[in-house]
Design a protein around this nucleic acid. Structure first.
Length: 433
RNA sequence: UCCCCGGUAGCUCAACGGUAGAGCAUUCGGCUGUUAACCGAAGGGUUGCAAGUUCGAAUCUUGCCCGGGGAGCCA
């Protein structure tokens, strides 16, 4: 008797099989039961009649939602069944029956956000949430496949960092052993700059933490970033790498998670066009576009959500905006030799209003300039000695970027909120469960 | 930190200042092809908290708490 998953059921038409999972829902119609099972790979309807399978019928009758069950029966193609196949249940073993006095709290109907987030540990059992998490996993797999294929070596950055790199206000402070303080990393970038000088082409992939009091559908306090960094690379190399990476991730999800995208009712025609090269415009051009559309943006402004949406909505694939004013960018950005007021940085804006998914560019490799910038930004030089060492010992031009995993996955999935695309979202004022 | 919205049964929501209700969930009963099944019945409430106005407050006022959306900041 083969033990199979619901995903595989189509290959077992006409055969007797065993499914191991949970009771997702059950409709009762007199002496006929229509239990619906889920096993993590999908959901499948069962049929059980009192007349033909009295023992199984008794086991299933009145069984509560999310009770764990091992079910045996014959798979058969059935037009009336959701998914096209159903299982004629012949035997049922109930491992744990959910109590009637404390029924499973999440019903098959609309629920509020607050309630669902408090039940996140159960909410992820819902088919929609499971589909999203599978797409997230595929996005990660494809991203690593791409980076590895491009000759980048995974060199992860530390989570604990010793000092405030860009001001303490947005950092989570933790007590480190005795009286020492440490901070949760905001970005692995400074560290991958170091490993890039050791290994050439590297990337980090891990969680980052921001104590910003942002309350929007695009923000989490804990999110995952993929951060490539390459020695001897320039802005153009990174824009090319970024569009290659995003194209590969999107196309891989389209190819390998078709069913999940379907479950989410995602309009995949909007993803199919996502292939390199992506449109690129300079910051100055972006300002002109905004002004033409009536937006009050002027040179020197950074873009907010509205501006990003106006710009990105004009294209069928992500948009790269490059060469921002140095004044609104991070201290380590290499100035454009043609226009020193501009930084050799770029952002990639996802379509459909999902905002910035990549930010990066070329880093300052000149020791004196970097020291100057540290001072201009009032940053503690002593904390950056190791970082300055990278400019003391064989400094070379180098570049990299950070890709926000959750924003990317939210865009691919078409979800309303970024919080749905990470198993346990951490947000301002919400760390449970 | 600022602006806007919300908080009523386990859940989703109604209720003009005048007896707190429905659907779902749960329990009981009915139904052999259901599609968030359906039909009938039952149980289930400190209306977020605290004051105030009023003959009377879920409803009006003030403060607080909690949550959501957005701004700023960012991925």
């Amino acid at each position: 008797m083969p033990i199979i998953t619901i995903e595989q059921a189509g290959q077992y038409d006409g055969q007797e099989v065993t499914l191991r999972g949970w009771l997702y829902n059950q409709r009762e119609s007199g002496k006929l039961l229509f239990p619906i099972f889920r096993d993590g790979t999908g959901i499948m309807q069962g049929v059980c009649s009192l007349k033909e399978q009295p023992a199984a019928f008794e086991a299933l009758r009145g069984l509560t939602q999310e009770s764990s069950v091992i079910v045996t029966g014959k798979i058969r193609a059935e037009q009336r069944a959701p998914g096209g196949f159903e299982i004629g249940v012949s035997a049922v073993e109930v491992l744990q029956r959910v109590s009637e006095s404390q029924p499973y709290p999440i019903q098959l109907k609309e629920h509020g956000v607050d309630f669902l987030l408090n039940q996140r540990h159960l909410w992820i059992r819902s088919p929609r949430q499971a589909a999203i998490l599978r797409i997230r996993a595929e996005a990660i797999r494809a991203a690593r496949e791409f980076m590895d294929g491009q000759g980048y070596t995974l060199t992860d950055a530390p989570i604990f960092t010793p000092a405030a790199c860009e001001g303490t206000t947005t950092l989570f402070e933790v007590q480190y052993i005795d009286d020492e303080k440490a901070y949760l990393t905001q970005s692995g970038q400074l560290y991958v700059e170091a490993t890039a000088m050791a290994l050439g082409k590297v990337y980090a992939f891990g969680p980052t933490f921001r104590a910003e009091k942002s309350k929007t559908r695009r923000h989490l306090t804990e999110f995952w970033m993929l951060e490539p960094e390459a020695a001897y690379a320039d802005l153009g190399d990174m824009m090319e790498l970024g569009e290659g990476l995003v194209s590969h991730v999107v196309q891989s999800v389209l190819k390998n998670r078709t069913r999940e995208l379907e479950a989410l009712k995602r309009d995949t025609t909007k993803l199919a066009t996502v292939k390199a090269p992506f449109p690129r415009i300079s910051y100055d051009e972006a300002i002109a576009v905004l002004q033409k559309s009536g937006n009050p943006a002027k040179h020197g402004d950074d873009f907010g959500g509205d501006e990003e949406t106006i710009l990105s909505s004009q294209y069928d694939r992500p948009l790269i905006v490059h060469r921002y004013p140095a004044a609104i960018k991070a201290f380590y950005m290499q100035p454009d030799p043609q226009r020193p007021d501009l930084a050799l940085g770029f952002d990639m804006l996802a379509p459909e209003g999902y905002g910035e998914i990549i930010g990066g560019g070329q880093r300052i490799h000149d020791y004196d300039l970097l020291v100057k910038r540290l001072r201009e930004h009032n940053l503690p030089e002593e904390s950056f000695q190791w970082y300055l060492d990278l400019r003391r010992y064989g400094s070379v031009p180098h570049a990299g970027f950070g890709l926000g995993l959750e924003r990317t996955v939210a865009w691919i999935c078409g979800t309303e909120h970024i919080r749905e695309v990470i198993p346990f979202p951490r947000m301002i004022y919400r760390v449970y469960p």
